[in-house]
C-alpha cells in the first residue's frame, strides 16, 4: 500500500469515499459509488439474503433513543437471532438499519469511517445535519442495488451539539432525507412499532420513560410481525437500545433492557394468554414470578 498523496488540484479533500475511489476503485464500486454499473429500472424478485427488520427512534427531554430488534430473516426462515442493527455513527450520533443486511452493514462501516475521517482530516466534527446528508448520499448511491431488491433504509439520530437538542432523520430508497420532530420507526414491523410510540409519546419524557416506550414498541412489533424478534430470555438475547445525549452515545446493558421488558409486561398485567384474555385471578402472581425467574 503506497502513501495516498494527491496533487493539490486533484485532492479528494476530507471525503473518505472519494479517497477510496482513488485508492481502491474495486471497493468503492462494490459500494455502489460507480452508479450506472447495474441497470436501474429492472426490478427483480428480492434475493434470498438476510434482511434486518424493525428499528425505531424517539426523542426525549435531553436526547434520543434508538432501538432495534435482533432478528434477520431470509425469506420465511430466521437467518440470525442476534444480528445488531443499531450502531454508533460517531461519539454523538447513532445509525440504525433495516433492509438487506449485507449492504446495510457495509454502508454503516463506510459511514462510520467517513465521519471519523472527516474529523481527523479537517480537525473539526461535522454538524449533525452534515452527517445526515452524508448518509443520504450513501443511500442514494445504493439505489441500483435497491432496485435489485437489496434496499437499505437507515434511521439516523443524534445530539446536535450546536443547537443542544436531539434530532432524528429518516430516509427513503432514493436517499431522500426527512427530519422527524419526535419519533419514527421503519422496517417490516415499523408500522406496529410506530403506532405504539405514537400512542405512548409525550413531550419531554425522561430517559427511562423513552427507553421503556422504545422497548414496548419493539415488543408490539414482534407480537404482530413474524420477521421481528422479541425478547429472548432463553438465549439471553435482547433488542439493542442506545441513547444519545450531551454525554454521547451510550448502549444500554442487556440486563437493563430485560428490566424494561419486565416492567412493560407488568404494566400490561402480566403475560397475555392466547385469545387476548388477561392472566387473572390468583394465577397472575405465579406467572409473573415465573417470568421474573426466566429473565434474571
Amino acid at each position: 500500500m503506497s502513501l495516498p498523496l494527491f496533487p493539490p488540484t486533484e485532492d479528494p479533500g476530507p471525503s473518505f469515499v472519494a479517497v477510496l475511489g482513488r485508492v481502491d476503485p474495486l471497493a468503492a464500486g462494490r459500494l455502489g459509488a460507480a452508479v450506472g454499473a447495474s441497470p436501474v429500472g429492472t426490478v427483480v424478485a428480492p434475493l434470498s439474503v438476510p434482511h434486518g427488520t424493525t428499528i425505531a427512534a424517539l426523542r426525549y427531554s435531553d436526547g434520543v433513543v434508538v432501538a432495534g430488534d435482533r432478528r434477520a430473516t431470509e425469506g420465511v426462515s430466521i437467518a440470525h437471532r442476534g444480528i445488531e442493527k443499531v450502531f454508533p455513527a460517531d461519539r454523538f450520533s447513532a445509525v440504525a438499519i433495516a433492509g438487506a443486511a449485507g449492504p446495510a452493514i457495509e454502508i454503516v462501516r463506510l459511514f462510520q469511517t467517513q465521519l471519523e475521517h472527516y474529523e481527523k482530516v479537517e480537525g473539526a466534527v461535522l454538524s449533525l445535519e452534515g452527517k445526515a446528508n452524508q448518509l443520504a448520499q450513501m443511500i442514494r448511491s445504493n439505489l441500483p442495488m435497491a432496485m435489485q431488491g437489496l434496499a437499505v433504509i437507515p434511521l439516523f439520530a443524534g445530539w446536535d451539539r450546536r443547537r443542544g437538542v436531539g434530532r432524528i432523520f429518516t430516509y427513503d430508497l432514493t436517499g431522500g432525507r426527512y427530519e422527524e420532530t419526535d419519533f419514527h420507526a421503519t422496517g417490516s414491523g415499523g408500522r406496529d412499532a410506530k403506532t405504539t410510540i405514537k400512542l405512548g409519546f409525550r413531550d419531554a419524557m425522561s430517559r427511562d420513560q423513552a427507553v421503556q416506550l422504545a422497548v414496548e414498541s419493539l415488543y408490539q412489533a414482534a407480537d404482530e410481525d413474524a420477521a421481528t424478534g422479541g425478547p429472548d430470555p432463553v438465549r439471553g438475547i435482547y433488542p439493542i437500545v442506545a441513547t444519545v445525549d450531551k454525554g454521547g452515545f451510550d448502549r444500554l446493558a442487556d440486563l437493563e433492557v430485560a428490566g424494561h421488558f419486565a416492567a412493560v409486561l407488568e404494566r400490561r398485567g402480566g403475560p397475555q394468554r392466547p385469545g387476548g384474555r388477561q392472566a387473572g385471578d390468583g394465577h397472575a402472581i405465579d406467572d409473573e414470578a415465573a417470568l421474573g425467574g426466566e429473565q434474571s
Binding site: 502513501l3 495516498p4 473518505f16 471497493a27 462501516r109 463506510l110 469511517t113 475521517h117 481527523k120 482530516v121
Partner: peptide, 14 residues
C-alpha cells in the same frame, strides 16, 4: 499527516 490518515483509514476499512 493527511496522507497518513488516508492510509490508515483505507487500511482499516479494507
Amino acid at each position: 499527516r493527511v496522507a497518513g490518515v488516508r492510509h490508515a483509514d483505507t487500511k482499516g476499512f479494507a
